[in-house]
Nucleic acid binder design. Structure first.
Lengths: 204, 204, 204, 204
DNA sequence: TATGAATGAGGATTCATTCAT
DNA sequence: AATGAATGAATCCTCATTCAT
């Protein structure tokens, strides 16, 4: 009955599908799609390889389902920016939420990073569609803030890029960050630095 | 004779080794190590697969040689920071050089990004050794600037992270950046934005 | 209780066994034994795969049961040849009945054809036993007709082969026949041709 | 270099490709496409499975190449029918040539039989194209002979079918034929019977 | 120096069959 | 009587690497 079933999933189906996706996240985020094997995912999920394929048609199906499932959570924080809030507070809040995501969901971040670095073969359409539209909307809001003088003039898209880059860096380049910082917790300094940067940039 | 030979390489050996490394860069930076095949590299290099392995012991050897060869160039700009120069100008200059590298050598950037996201299995030692030391040195310089009041107080390491993150973002997440910007050239806006950010952060 | 049960089958058992055999006929006759999957048979039978195996021990059991069930019907027409009838009429009648079977039960014909072409691994014994004896009996009858001058001298076994070959051809090689004839109904011309051939051969 | 290479095949390539096709004939003709495994073909060809795939892209490619290679030989005898020859002799000659092919190349016959029984998924186009045209041409010739009274009136296509059916029967249904005939050589009686049938049918 | 030929070790996927309910 | 869940044994195919020339 399964094979990517969506409706009327029984308890056990939901449980196993979740287990597989969770395992897929662990494995794919570390080794990328091609670098991962179904054996690894099965091992991590604690079930046999054929049983994996009982729930998902193929390795690709697991990976794609995983991307699709995570994508919405990934864009979510951006939607929370309130046009009627205090501009600097809103943008700082967004940056902090993103940083928290890097701290709490580094694998998700790496999964997307892997995908995008390799040319986003599976989510290119989402990037050029939904994501672009969402960014366009936020850009209008930021532009409005700048025009009304509540923040300095900035290019809204590059502002967003810089927030993404700086926050995701702590998840994606985790090994490098820790190699340099040693035992120091990256995220404390990161938040402070981020705050300072955005303040310096935005406050008129 | 070759097999990773280093001394007394003839002209043709050098030529072929370069061709292989160049091809490796193209292929590995797009598909990652595991996602690339020797067939692809051989095709790109315009020579036969066994001939590849005449010059390099293994697929891994090509990849490792490539990483090693690029690493020095990658760190180079950091060494150029002059303790006796104007602090803001030095840091801005560094950021611009990094941005230029993302523009001119995006594949190199992606190659490293791939490697580090996957846990830096091959260059972890360099990160924890040479890179860390280098960053420590620069950190001392920046700290000196801050103490003497020539720039605002900042965490030098997070400052460096933020420069890396923001500049490499344009190479590593190229597809995403272009998906959002459409036909606009990313690098013009990027440089301006970077400049504004660093100015806002650093100038006392 | 079932698993190839034979006695005391309830109504529902008989119904399901029939459904499975009917489905097996459709699938096996098209793809052969190895080319067919239990999924296909289950789908065609409108029941689940494990339920199939509740009624038949294995895929092989379905196939074998099917062959056995059809075999008797398949030989039946041969038994109907009447030693006391008019020789030419009897043989012509037999040929026409076989042709009608090709028209009405092409899948059964193809099922046997598949089996025999692949060396009759499951019904070789029947061929060498029951079928051979039956043919021997008919051969005696035909020889009798020839000796008494009521038909021309023929080799009775090759006569039977030629009737089998020409009639089953329209079922087994259906695609080829229709490729050549286009929209023309194969069976009209076939019967006439068959009649002409046998008449020419047999009538003294 | 190989992978279905066609031009400039070296000696060893030709040798191996031939060996593979020969092995494929043996295996595929007995078990059909789905029923055969690459292991069997490799074993029969005396080489390793990956080496098979060095010469042919896939199992399917071997099978298709085999069909294509044999098809022409298969149609050849039909082309040899001479419009200016003696009608009965020409047709009898054709039938005998076909019978000889069944005797000498039974595997080729079974290979085609397997394919056509299963719906000719790979050579349907050839049947509806080249074969149909060829048969149409011969039909014109036969019709001409009938109109001029040199043979009895017959439906030329059904005549051809009956020749095909009766001759190929001895290859395709070999096991059955031998089960019935015992130790008697099938082909002696077959030829006589065939001759008698065609004479009875055709001679005015 | 170069390459055609060959292969062992995977790796994704299929499938008949069994298990548990 | 019926089915969702699970799996071991294939089976096709890929790929880094080696061999022979």
């Amino acid at each position: 009955m399964p094979k990517d079933a969506q409706k009327s999933d029984t308890r056990i189906q939901k449980k196993n599908q979740s287990a597989i996706l969770a395992a897929g996240l662990v494995v794919f985020s570390q080794f990328g799609f091609r670098g991962s094997t179904l054996d690894q995912v099965a091992e991590e999920a604690g079930m046999s390889k054929p049983n994996l394929l009982y729930y998902f048609r193929s390795k690709d199906a697991i990976y794609t389902a995983l991307l699709a499932k995570l994508l919405e959570n990934w864009l979510e924080p951006l939607r929370k920016i309130d046009p009627d809030g205090d501009p600097v507070a809103e943008l700082l809040g967004y940056a902090k939420r993103k940083l928290a995501m890097s701290q709490n969901f580094p694998r998700e971040s790496r999964l997307f990073a892997n995908e995008i670095i390799q040319g986003a073969p599976r989510i290119g359409d989402v990037l050029r569609g939904e994501l672009r539209e969402l960014v366009d909307e936020i850009a209008v809001i930021i532009d409005g803030w700048a025009v009304s003088g509540r923040i300095n003039a900035v290019d809204p898209r590059h502002l967003i890029f810089s927030i993404w880059a700086q926050t995701q860096h702590y998840a994606d380049f985790d090994v490098q960050v820790r190699a340099i910082l040693g035992d120091v917790d990256p995220f404390e300094g990161a938040e402070q630095h981020l705050e300072a940067m955005l303040h310096g940039l935005l406050t008129p």
